[in-house]
């Protein structure tokens, strides 16, 4: 108590004595500040370098297209209405195939998370399907589901199915058991517990699994459009590749990237809405 009185006394802090010096600050750092302009600047500088290099001739026209030509190609695509002609089938394939794969994946994942029999029976199966390069199955799907939209939906659906299953049953496993006991203690029905406790509790894991699944779906979109697609971003890229038309090839790649960024942004928005309850 005596000490406390001392420190609260009216004496000014001692700063004049030779022995006193300020403690050197040694924290800080290791915390990268985000700067959105840096990212954009890197893009602009790279694109400008490529453009100048191609115009000056120190980059061969065989190796890269002019960014300005890619831009012009994109503009033409937009103006001629070909963008929607290619984008619409691709988006509908992504939507239908992705929705089928994700819904089936969530359903099976929840079943694996809840029922011992499903877990014992299906986990090895999912583990067996997961590492198969789905692209290798495309010819098989063509035989099973036809060369039309069926085989494309199936490929994208299978590609999104397995990561969704794995993410979902992991998320269900991680749902707080005390919440489930609480539901039981209040006499909630089994279905209510699944719907109101298990599913929302697993949602963060399911959504981050969906993020991965969507990226895989976009990769598989190009593969799906290898066989029998006359329109679609993937078909457009493959056609440009076979024509060795670098302008179109890059235009297609830019569209795919934009699609990826847009979907990722939409997922972020969805997460923000659905997971608002998290900090």
């Amino acid at each position: 108590m005596a000490d406390a009185t001392d420190s609260h006394g009216s004496k000014p802090p001692r700063t004049d004595a030779a022995a006193s010096r300020e403690i050197r600050f040694r924290g800080g750092g290791f915390r990268p500040q985000s700067n959105r302009w840096a990212g954009i600047a890197v893009f602009i500088v790279l694109i400008a370098l490529v453009e100048i290099g191609l115009r000056q001739g120190w980059i061969s026209a065989l190796t890269l297209p002019r960014p300005s030509a890619v831009g012009a190609t994109l503009w033409q695509l937009w103006e001629s209405g070909n963008l929607t002609r290619h984008l619409f089938p691709s988006l509908s394939r992504l939507a239908v195939g992705g929705a089928m794969g994700a819904l089936a994946g969530i359903a099976i994942g929840v079943a694996i998370g809840l029922f011992g029999l499903a877990r014992a029976g299906l986990v090895p199966l999912v583990a067996a399907i997961f590492p198969i390069p789905k692209i290798a199955l495309l010819p098989l799907f063509v035989i099973w589901f036809g060369i039309g939209e069926g085989s494309k939906y199936a490929l994208i659906a299978l590609g999104t199915f397995t990561p969704t299953v794995v993410a979902t049953f992991g998320a269900v496993d991680n749902v707080d058991r005390t919440l489930i006991r609480m539901g039981q203690s209040f006499g909630l029905t089994w279905w209510s517990i699944v719907r109101k406790i298990v599913l929302p509790g697993a949602m963060p894991g399911i959504l981050s699994g969906l993020r991965v699944s969507l990226a895989i779906a976009i990769i598989l979109l190009v593969a799906a459009e290898m066989l029998g697609a006359q329109a679609g971003i993937g078909a457009y890229i493959l056609e440009a590749g076979s024509l060795y038309d670098l302008d179109r090839l890059f235009a297609g790649v830019v569209i795919l990237s934009a699609l990826g960024v847009t979907l990722s942004w939409a997922m972020g928005l969805l997460e923000k809405r659905v997971l608002r309850w998290r900090a």
């Binding site: 060369i147 290898m226 066989l227 029998g228 697609a229 006359q230 078909a235 493959l238 056609e239």
Partner: peptide, 15 residues
């Protein structure tokens, strides 16, 4: 005709 791209000759034969 509806032109159907299949990438490789064996794929066309199979189809």
């Amino acid at each position: 005709l509806e032109f159907t791209p299949l990438q490789k000759v064996p794929a066309v034969i199979g189809a």
